[in-house]
Amino acid sequence: MTEAPAYFVHESAYVDQPSTIGAGTKIWHFSHILGNTHIGANCTLGQNVVVGPDVRVGDNCKIQNNVSLYKGVELADGVFCGPSCVFTNVLTPRAEVERKDEFGATPVGRGATIGANATVVCGHSIGEYAMIAAGAVVTKDVPPHALVAGVPARRVGWVSRSGERLTANMRCPRTGEYYEEDTVTGGLKVKGI
């Protein structure tokens, strides 16, 4: 008797091998996981999601409908990708010019949120717990805890680990944590409670 997998894949979805999928993960309608892809535990991939090849998704990620994660994209644990957000894979695409060797790395830090219909141009990193507003176009690195919006995306504030916008006192209204500038990353870090 074959043991049932510890994850769920809808009957309309495809998972190419070799791939690994963590326990508790759910992959919904019409999604496609390409080979050499790792998806962590307790993730949810909505309808029409494409991941891979050669992509790593951490644990506890939520990838909403109509998102494609191409080679070069790497999601740390706890990343939220809003519906129809876009990750590019080359800077100057042309249909008649092969550029698969030019795919840019796009690491997304732990707990980051990418809003609906946002675009992240390849070769830029998203810091941990950063928040990309819906419809924003990211054209440069985003530091940890930054809230960015607009076209091109610019920092308009700071957010806590729980996603609350920080005011001048740099205290999270939900958790009471205080934040301070991190001179190494150009973003913020938790100072204490």
Rank of each mutant, 00 (worst) to 15 (best):
T175R: 11
G58N: 12
P107H: 13
C61W: 05
N89S: 14
V151I: 14
M170W: 07
T92H: 13
V49S: 15
G157F: 02
E74M: 09
E3P: 03
E11A: 14
S31Q: 08
G104H: 03
H145F: 12
Q64V: 00
P152H: 08
S31C: 03
G72T: 12
Y14M: 00
R99A: 14
G176V: 06
G163T: 12
T113I: 05
G176P: 00
A133M: 01
Y129Q: 04
P152K: 05
Q64D: 11
M1S: 15
R56E: 15
N48I: 08
N169E: 15
R56T: 11
Y179T: 11
P173A: 11
I33A: 06
V137A: 09
T139N: 00
V86F: 03
V151W: 01
C172Y: 11
N89W: 00
A149P: 07
R99I: 07
T37R: 02
V108N: 02
C85N: 12
V190E: 07
K140I: 05
G46T: 09
L166D: 08
Y129V: 01
Y14A: 02
S84R: 05
G24V: 06
A95H: 08
D59E: 15
C85G: 13
E181I: 06
G109V: 01
V190L: 10
E181T: 13
H38T: 14
V15A: 05
T44S: 10
A112S: 09
V15N: 04
V138R: 01
V50L: 15
V50A: 10
V55N: 01
L147Q: 05
F87N: 02
D59M: 10
V79G: 14
T185R: 05
K26N: 08
V86M: 07
V9W: 05
A116V: 07
V142G: 01
S162T: 13
V73L: 14
A133K: 01
L166M: 10
I114K: 09
L34E: 15
G123A: 04
S68N: 11
N66S: 14
C122K: 12
F87V: 01
T88M: 10
R155E: 12
G109T: 02
T185Q: 13
H124N: 10
V156C: 06
G150I: 04
N66Y: 12
I39Q: 01
N36V: 00
V15M: 03
K62I: 14
A118V: 07
E177C: 09
V73E: 03
C122F: 08
G35N: 04
I39E: 06
C61Y: 06
V79N: 12
L34N: 02
V120T: 09
P107M: 04
L69V: 00
M131E: 00
N36F: 11
V86D: 02
I27W: 04
T20C: 05
C81K: 10
C81F: 05
V138E: 06
N89E: 15
G104Y: 04
T183C: 02
V108H: 10
I193G: 11
S84E: 11
T119I: 13
N36Y: 13
R161Y: 02
A6E: 10
F8Y: 15
D101C: 05
A6G: 06
H38P: 00
V79P: 13
W158G: 02
P83N: 03
T175K: 13
V137L: 08
Q47M: 12
S19N: 03
A134P: 00
G150S: 05
